[in-house]
Design a protein around this nucleic acid. Sequence first.
DNA 1: CTAAAACCTGACATCAATGTGAGAGGCAAG
DNA 2: CTTGCCTCTCACATTGATGTCAGGTTTTAG
Lengths: 123, 123
Amino acid sequence: MRIGELAARAGVSVRSLRYYEEQGLLTSTRSAGGQRHYTQDDVERVAFIQRLYAAGLSSRTIIELLPCLDSPSDENSDAAMERMAKERDRLSAHIEDLLRTRDALDVLMVAAQAHRDARQTAA
Amino acid sequence: MRIGELAARAGVSVRSLRYYEEQGLLTSTRSAGGQRHYTQDDVERVAFIQRLYAAGLSSRTIIELLPCLDSPSDENSDAAMERMAKERDRLSAHIEDLLRTRDALDVLMVAAQAHRDARQTAA
DNA sequence: CTAAAACCTGACATCAATGTGAGAGGCAAG
DNA sequence: CTTGCCTCTCACATTGATGTCAGGTTTTAG
């Protein structure tokens, strides 16, 4: 498929796909005319990349992890493993932080609701 | 306390504190010479702001929530409540996403570990 | 064959929070 | 008063992913 279709299927902009390639996160075969062609697998790959972006990883970090996804029989596994463990920890910490933040929001909301109820009762 | 001390206590840069004020997230009293003075409460406030930033809220969004923190007996409660509910939902969804991402990372790590073990056994 | 639609490269724009530097002034200790 | 540190404002730079525009080429539909 061409870049437009991949963009549509993966829910990403065409611009982003070209950027991913520029960053080395995604590769493509080229037609005689120079247009990028992708396979079905790339849809999943892009989705995974997006997931890692959403998790706060940078292109640079993602690129260190991808070899592990591409060729699990690589020597890079050692370095990648270390990196993944590190990012996993960071992610866990971030999740914990978000949970605490959500709790804090809940507290605020309960307080606001209580105020609203009080006003309602008074009215 | 002056801005430098608040920055140190809250673990934020002086620049950021001035930015928060510029965005209306933080207020200060000024000395005769124009220097900002803060109270102990501001340390907590800055920590809370940081927490919301980490949760992906923008200054604009935070500013809509803060009135609710400042004066829980405000008319703004209605709008703020709505906003908080919305952000809470977004936050929950984001947390779910991060959990799935962490699971995906775990899967990758298990695969990598399996490969490493296989290599170890072979050697 | 031709026109429309999709694609190409390259460059500049954007956003938000923060860094950084200049030049000037405040404030406390000696 | 002076020295040194902190602070002030203003303004421009940075980062990273993405938007957008321009000018040109490829592909596809009719």
